[in-house]
Amino acid sequence: MPDVKDVGALMSVTYDVAARDFVRAGEAASKLKRLLQQLGLDPAVIRRAAIAAYEAEMNIVIHSYGGQIKVDITPESIEMICEDSGPGIPDIEKALQEGYSTATEEIREMGFGAGMGLPNIQRSADQFRIESTVGEGTCLQVTILHEAGE
């Protein structure tokens, strides 16, 4: 179960994401979506948050040894910190290119690894930061503003 702390106007939730678990993959994004719906947020904002969370979750499942998605919901924004321990990304610029993927053939056959994950996150986000250390892991920071347009 995610840890939910309601600190005044700020709500903070953390979802654990297991590596290589393709049956449970998507559950963190699904739980986040349900929470945002319960909070009554704008459907377009919820969809953008769902896309970002899903893609970040799948990246952790496919590429890392496991990680977490921590979400802070404030009156202004939804902020996600998606952190994993794993091999890291040697060339971030390349990883951000649409169509570039290091996923295996087996993963691609399942319909993942199209090289759309990080670009989808970037497009859904109002602010996006990525940091990665080879041999240690990757951290994404994604901010989605409640008021911003698509």
């Binding site: 393709f22 049956v23 993959a25 998507g26 559950e27 994004a29 699904s30 979506k33 969809r47 769902a50 896309i51 899903y54 799948m58 399942m110 319909g111 993942f112």
Partner: peptide, 16 residues
């Protein structure tokens, strides 16, 4: 409409 059969299809369908 898809040819994928694994469980993540349901996660995506539900999310969208």
């Amino acid at each position: 409409v898809t040819n994928q059969v694994h469980a993540n299809v349901v996660a995506v369908a539900s999310l969208i």
